[in-house]
Simulated scan of single mutants.
Amino acid sequence: MKAKSYAKVNLFLKIEGYKDGFHQINSRFLKVKNLYDEIEIKEADKFNIIGDFDCVLRDNTIFRAYLKLITEYPDIRDYFIGKEIRVTKNIPSGAGLGGGSSNAATFLKMVNSDSGLNLSLDELAKIGAEIGSDVPFFIYDFDIANVYGRGEIIEEFEEEKIDVEVYTPPIECLTADVYRMYRERYYNPTKSNFDKIPTLELLNNYKPEELNDLLRPALALYPELFKYKDGFFSGSGSSFFKLKQKDEK
């Protein structure tokens, strides 16, 4: 069983407050269909998770999703006996593209279908939200959606199709550090109406710093980003993106 695990970009990201230990966001996520990891679940001698990960196994989002499943649904343990989860990584880490969250969501959906667990998307999203704030977006699999709260509130946003080109500098931005810098030096939560505005209007009329509250703290933490600063900033970085022209393939 194989599936693609897509990247995302934040078309805008505004921070509207801080509650229960989490920043409250108003953002719009776009699925990037030409950038994805690949996940395969196949029979093997023993349970294993294999991939070129940048963390120890206990911190891996797929492993954490596995632990959540066997804890909340003990009967599913039998499904994992003799299963190998192999991940081919293409989405860079520390890039603001949601690779780890996408992997967890894709894994949850694959297991849900293949094992006969048959949880609803809402139930899967609730599990996913405990693994990572971006996981629910990938569970619902919208092409584009407004995202609120800590990331658990997802509303599909219908508009004309847009495509982006993504560029990731050779710099890894640590999400927790960027948010901490935001709180310490740039904290100014305000309500935004960007979620009501079509994406093309936003990208054509606002500066990158206006669209993403994390750009300035990321630049302060990682000044080497300045030489790559071209286009709009995704998440906590380090990736930038531009609109792809319609005549580009």
Results as ranks from 00 to 15, higher is better:
V135P: 06
E84I: 01
G98D: 00
G235F: 08
N193K: 14
R86D: 02
D177K: 15
F232E: 01
L117A: 03
E43F: 10
D143Q: 14
A95Q: 03
A145G: 10
S101Q: 06
D75V: 00
E43C: 04
I15D: 07
K89W: 00
S115C: 01
E224C: 00
G231E: 05
Y36G: 00
L221E: 02
L108C: 11
D141F: 10
L69E: 01
N112I: 13
D163Y: 15
D122Q: 09
L221W: 04
R77Y: 01
A125R: 08
G128P: 11
D134A: 01
D54H: 10
F157H: 01
R150W: 09
K8Q: 07
K33S: 10
G151T: 12
I49L: 06
F80E: 12
F142G: 03
L174I: 15
F233R: 02
E210W: 05
P169E: 13
V9K: 04
A44C: 11
S133C: 04
Y186C: 13
G94C: 03
D78G: 07
Q24C: 10
F194G: 13
K207Q: 10
R150M: 12
P217Y: 07
E38A: 00
S234I: 04
R77D: 06
G128D: 11
G82L: 07
E152L: 03
N193G: 08
T199D: 06
L219A: 07
T199P: 09
F137C: 08
G235R: 11
G99I: 02
N193H: 14
S120W: 05
F138D: 06
N10T: 06
D177V: 00
D59Y: 14
I70N: 02
M110E: 07
S133K: 11
E156G: 07
E158I: 15
C173H: 04
K242N: 13
V32R: 02
P169S: 10
I171R: 06
R86E: 11
H23M: 06
L221A: 05
Y140D: 12
E224Q: 12
K31F: 11
C55R: 01
F63G: 00
R58P: 00
Y222L: 02
L117I: 04
N26M: 09
